[in-house]
Amino acid sequence: MVAYLTSPRFLRAALPAASFIILLAAIFYVQPRAMSYFGMNLMLQYTVPIALATIAQMFIITVNDLDLSIGAFVGLTACIGATLLADTPILGFLALAACIAAYAALGALIHWRNLPSIVVTLGMSFVWLGIAVLILPTPGGTAPGWVKAIMSLKVPYVPFPIIAAIVIGVVVHLVLMTSSYGAVLRGAGGNPKAIGRAGWSLLKTKMVMFGAAGFFGVLSGLSLIGLTSAADAHIADRYTLYAIAGVILGGGEFVGGRVSPIGAVIGALTLALTGSFLTFLRISPDWQIGAQGGILILVLALRALINRREA
């Protein structure tokens, strides 16, 4: 038992949860009043869109690619949600479906022409931003009522963001980690050649993963306007790096198909909490991003230590 608890495999899996709990404990120590239903709700409310964007990024990282456009894409879907979807729902749904299809098409293009995903998505981020600005030149719009209703759901005892995070993590875990096609999808990140040799279509795996990323990007954008009730093209620019950091914090690796959906959600929660923690410490907002980076480096250094023990 002790051997299992100190094995690198267990430590690696437990690290994201442990860093989240330590951070939460530190917050409660500094600001005991946060330890309440209302406090938790306030602190964690923005984790839902971040967690969804992180899951989107995780799908891309699973197949050894990286998406530098997810922030701009979430911004675009938020703008569509606050304008088209609110005014003419059918047109809005079609536009969002087209966004997902465009993501799947990007996956196909990256596979077919063997392009570096970083370059393609970096370019696409400006395309998404441009379309978003065309749709909504100035901040504004209104979120559809049902989106707001979902996001302001009041659940007894446990704050809604925590329930939402658990649901997101568990659903994606079931689909990606336990389904039989999920094994093929992850295998396409671990050893694409072997998957191809076993007769699977690598084009299809790429398209499925990019399509899934697009779908979660849409969900992220909608949940974001459910909280803010208005949109702006630049509303989610920071999400690109949050999402990458969340996946890595959650135990994922850039190559090799090693990812963890539950870890990624916890990673997103941890990132969101560091913001609150630094505010409670009265650190000026100018220093917050740097301090977040510091925490990230700390956690990754711990993981590197665990991995070294394993080697």
Partner: peptide, 16 residues
């Protein structure tokens, strides 16, 4: 070798 290192033994059997 053509196994996926990130998958379990059972999952690798499933790929086939």
């Amino acid at each position: 070798l053509s196994l996926c290192p990130n998958l379990t033994v059972a999952e690798n059997a499933r790929i086939f």
